[in-house]
Structure formats: structure tokens, C-alpha cells
């Protein structure tokens, strides 16, 4: 995973990524952090994290693109673009950074790019630059507080999802259920291959690979790519 516009304040994200990653250290660092300016002495390369200085995009877009190529960004599983600090319009800055990433990956596999914005209204500006997810931390907080106000049980569920206590996975559709409906499948599939309880919560439709939660009990499974299941960590 690559973190662009890393600062010491983003160490929490680094720790979270390290916790979520299953990459073996022998394969190289799990997280590469691109920073600008100076690197604090408390942070240094180690087996799992690597720090790379990058030019600010407003100074030299080509140099940044080259840096991306140098670190092999096209091989990254995911790229997180954080808001740049000390710039007047960080979201615009992030968009141009995404352009640099897209250039660096041109002709190659496009990684999963996540951008954190400061202004939620700027989300639409990232259309067409290869961004798969635009994230605003305020939205997450608002969602958490809203669910806490509406229903504490739901709040705990969402909180558990974030904490990783519950995981959503995509599994294949058993051939025996191809001709059935989602309702029948939900009744039938009670455990996974390891015998752990699972719940079918949705499907991945074939048309656009879209994930649909609760498609309805009558939804036919003949055009479904996989099941969304909710299970433990």
C-alpha cells in the first residue's frame, strides 16, 4: 500500500494498514509513505514501512510522476492520497496528484486509489482520474453519530465493522443454488467452508460487478457473480 502526502499525523493510518496487511516482510515493505519536506528522526525505514521523499505536485509534476514510477506504484494494491498540508486547496492538489499516479500507471494495471478530501463537495472533481473511492472523515463521524442517535445496536454493528470485528467477504455461488433465489440461498447457506456461521447479506451482480446488499428474497441467482457474506474477523 502507498500513502501519498504522508505526515507524522498519518502514523495511525500506517499502523492500521500494517494491521490489515498480510504481506510477508520478505516480500518488501507493506507500506510506502511518500512525504514532502523533512522526515522526523522518529520515523525511519524498517522492514515493513519505507519512507520516500517526493516533490510537491505544484512544483514539479513530472518529478512526482517519476517518483511514482520509481516505487513501482502500478504494483501497489491500494494507494491512499491524503490531503496535502500547507497548500491552499488541498483537494485540487490531491486531484493533480491522482493525475500523476494515472500517468505513472499508464498502460499498466490501475491500482485501487482512495482519496481523502477535506471538502466533501470536491468529490465530483475526481471523476475520470482513476479514483475508486473518495473519503471524507467527517462523513464517517456523522454516520457513526447518526446511527448512535437512531439505534445503539446499529451503532455497535457499524462500529464493529470499522473495528474489524465483522468482515464482509465475497464468496462463490454454489452451483446447486444457481437456479434458486436469494431467499432460498439465505436460508440454505448457514456456514462457510470452515464451518463458521455466515450470513448472506448480498450479491455481486454480473452487469457491472456492482455489490448489492439485500437484493430481495426473489432475486434470481443465475446472473450473480458471488455472494456477499458477513462473518467474523
Amino acid at each position: 500500500m502507498v500513502i501519498v502526502h504522508w505526515t507524522p499525523k498519518a502514523q495511525g493510518l500506517v499502523d492500521a494498514l500494517l494491521g490489515a496487511s498480510t504481506r510477508s516482510p520478505a516480500l518488501g515493505p507493506a507500506v510506502i509513505c511518500l512525504f514532502q519536506g523533512g522526515l522526523p528522526p522518529s520515523h525511519a525505514d524498517n522492514a515493513r514501512v519505507r519512507f520516500v521523499r517526493a516533490s510537491p505536485v505544484n512544483e514539479n509534476l513530472d518529478a512526482l510522476t517519476e517518483t511514482f514510477r520509481d516505487i513501482g506504484i502500478e504494483r501497489a494494491r491500494s494507494i491512499v492520497v491524503l490531503p496535502a498540508v500547507h497548500v491552499p486547496e488541498s483537494d485540487a492538489h490531491s486531484r493533480v496528484t491522482c493525475l500523476a499516479i494515472t500517468r505513472a500507471c499508464e498502460g499498466k494495471r490501475q491500482p485501487n486509489i482512495l482519496v481523502e478530501v477535506e471538502d466533501p463537495d470536491a468529490a465530483y472533481e475526481f471523476a475520470g482520474v482513476g479514483v475508486s473511492t473518495v473519503f471524507h472523515s467527517g462523513y464517517l463521524r456523522a454516520a457513526l453519530f447518526a446511527h448512535a442517535c437512531v439505534d445503539l445496536g446499529v451503532f455497535q454493528f457499524v462500529y464493529g465493522l470499522l473495528q474489524g470485528r465483522h468482515r464482509v467477504r465475497l464468496i462463490d455461488v454454489p452451483p446447486s443454488l444457481r437456479s434458486q433465489t436469494f431467499g432460498v440461498a439465505a436460508q440454505t447457506m448457514e456456514t462457510d467452508e470452515r464451518g463458521h456461521p455466515i450470513i448472506l447479506i448480498g450479491v455481486q451482480v454480473a452487469d457491472d460487478n456492482r455489490l448489492v446488499i439485500n437484493p430481495g428474497p426473489r432475486h434470481r441467482l443465475d446472473s450473480v457473480l458471488g455472494f456477499l457474506t458477513l462473518g467474523g474477523p
Binding site: 492500521a16 490489515a20 491500494s78 482512495l114
Partner: peptide, 17 residues
Amino acid sequence: GRVLADRWLATACVDPG
């Protein structure tokens, strides 16, 4: 909030869906 945001980003990085 920030800790949960980091976890969200990390989970989204690992699991695109």
C-alpha cells in the same frame, strides 16, 4: 474519529468492496 477513519481507509485498501 481519526482512528476509525484510518481503519476505514485501511479496510478499504485491503478490501475494495
